[in-house]
Design a protein around this nucleic acid. Structure first.
Lengths: 330, 330
DNA sequence: CAAACCTTTACAAAACATAGACAAAAATTA
DNA sequence: TAATTTTTGTCTATGTTTTGTAAAGGTTTG
């Protein structure tokens, strides 16, 4: 994979506009007024852009929709822009006292484990306030990505296990879901998603009352640049399909964390497939997804194997989506 | 520890207002009169703020709503402000009771209606992003209290009605719940709740899947100075009772918005009463609460009649609670 | 030659700015 | 307690800046 800052990749303004989501006229206006990008020219005078220019315009577009004024940020470097969008999380939080020094991934993992223990203790003690406070601090210290990967994901797994052994009750899970749900606001601020981002619906099918897995999936997808509509738990196939239709989503993620012996889940999955058709990617994850393997195969859904697997899946689908979208536009 | 990074993060006043919860006019007034913040300017004279300015305004906003006079605290450092709020565990809950806002009440109501229409349109169009954006703006413009009373409360009623007529589907309600849930973070932020606040559990009994009412109750109680643990919908009596026990809550609010003919709700209510005993106030509200009137009477629960009724109830219970607590301490 | 691009100029809506006024709330004084 | 001053949030009026969009008319490209 070569990052081309050379002449090899050259685009005209129309392409740039489509890919970045900024209208042609506006691209020119931004150049004229703020020198936001400085494309080279053909001999005839047409603007010629590089991949970096596109990336730049994309970021600028995100940043403006996040509340920054274009005049103020147009001349920032690519790194500064990335930094700007990435740090939006920690800055919306009150505790500014923690230093933004970047930790190594090892440190982060250790720190995350530390937090994980504290958070689990708060869950066990049924202390919602304390739990939220730990989460807030962890997000600031770890950054949203590490927060998800090294803290939230393992924590939810642990909660699931302890729930099975009886150390935790359903109500613990409800409380935790509630706290995490209110945190999505901070997490989302990190990634203001552009207009043309691929859309996804996240929910759980009828009979599946546990929403922690779905919540995690939703947050992850948002951080990967998806525009997610989260619907909560326990929805009928028709309802979920309606949401897919309303939002024009190209992917649908379901979490199945409880193995039932009735045929509800299987039936719902089959109905869903029929309702949403083939152009919508069906993704299923969760502790008990394996229990329904045969149906999953039959219906043709993608089964999430792990944290990283889901992330890959998300990125893969996003690029696929963009490719087909570009094709349609041309 | 001073954080001096992010000269790059620059916002105009509208964004600052949205993030901090302080109206634009007031931001300027605070600057003019007390130099509470000292933004740089664009060449054209527009104010440009940093993330720290936003954090500062957020804190100042909290502190003023806690009873401090802006003139006295405007020039304190960030750390001092944090310290101030941290020690503020004994703030009296003046939030809902002391400000009847008679002067702009008409205007606010009008504004709220305006927003309400926009929000309902967003719900109908199934546009979660737009809905959230309207909510955010409304919170800044109306303030939390009017937001709840004149916007959220009637909006939820309307959604309930339209749901019955079939104009809206269950999935609309789920989406709306999800958006509102993530907003609780902002709403709560404006009203930090004291340590010794009375505690409350909010949920819905088994079979009651609609959580909008419960959500509204939870938000209201938080604004009234309660420390609320929200559990979401559809929980068994044992689970709810466990939460009450864990948190040592002195009140329990349930929302019942769907009239069923089976005896589940009645059974659950009886069991709950038995489980939590007499020292916990049982409060029930929601569209369909009247349908179970006989059980409510039998078990001895308080039935929410209206928005203002619930508010009175909350304040009454809070003062009662404080009285008995003081007695015990003496 | 048509489609796409260029530049320049203009326009309008939204957002900001300043200055000053006003009234409710809070503090102070009589 | 009543009258006063101060504080503080809000609003109005009027002008400017920012910013997205569009029109007009010429040029390049395939």
């Amino acid at each position: 994979m070569t990052v081309t800052n050379d002449d090899s990749a050259q685009y005209l303004i129309r392409t740039v506009s489509k890919r970045s989501g900024v209208k042609s006229d506006l691209v020119r206006a931004w150049e004229r007024r703020y020198q936001a990008v400085t494309p080279t020219r053909t001999s005839g005078g047409h603007r010629v852009y590089t991949d970096q220019d596109i990336a730049r315009l994309k970021l600028l577009n995100q940043a403006t929709s996040n509340g920054h004024s274009i005049g103020q940020i147009a001349q920032l470097s690519l790194d500064d822009l990335k930094h700007l969008l990435k740090d939006e999380t920690s800055s919306t939080n009150q505790s500014l006292s923690s230093s933004p020094i970047s930790l190594t991934s090892g440190d982060k993992r250790h720190l995350a484990e530390d937090y994980s223990d504290k958070c689990y203790a708060a869950v066990l003690a049924f202390d919602a306030q304390l739990l939220e406070s730990h989460f807030e601090n962890a997000i600031v210290e770890l950054g949203s990505e590490a927060f998800i990967e090294h803290l939230l994901s393992p924590l939810l797994t642990k909660i699931g296990e302890r729930w099975k052994t009886g150390e935790l009750r359903p109500v613990h899970e409800h409380m935790t879901s509630s706290v995490i749900r209110s945190l999505t606001y901070i997490l989302r601020n990190n990634n203001p998603c552009p207009e043309n981002a691929p859309r996804m619906i996240v929910s759980t099918p009828i009979g599946q009352l546990h929403e922690l897995g779905a919540l995690l999936a939703a947050i992850m997808a948002e951080l990967c640049g998806w525009q997610v509509t989260y619907l909560g738990a326990n929805l009928a196939a028709e309802e979920i399909a309606a949401a897919v239709k309303y939002t024009n989503a190209c992917a649908l993620t379901l979490s199945i964390s409880f193995a039932t012996d009735d045929h509800v889940v299987a039936k719902e999955l089959r109905r869903l497939k029929k309702l949403v058709g083939n152009h919508v990617s069906l993704i299923v994850g969760g502790r008990a997804a394996g229990h329904f393997q045969s149906v999953l195969n039959e219906v043709g859904v993608m089964n999430i194997q792990s944290y990283t697997h889901f992330k890959q899946l998300l990125n893969q689908l996003a690029t696929d989506y963009k490719a087909t979208e570009n094709k349609q536009l041309q």
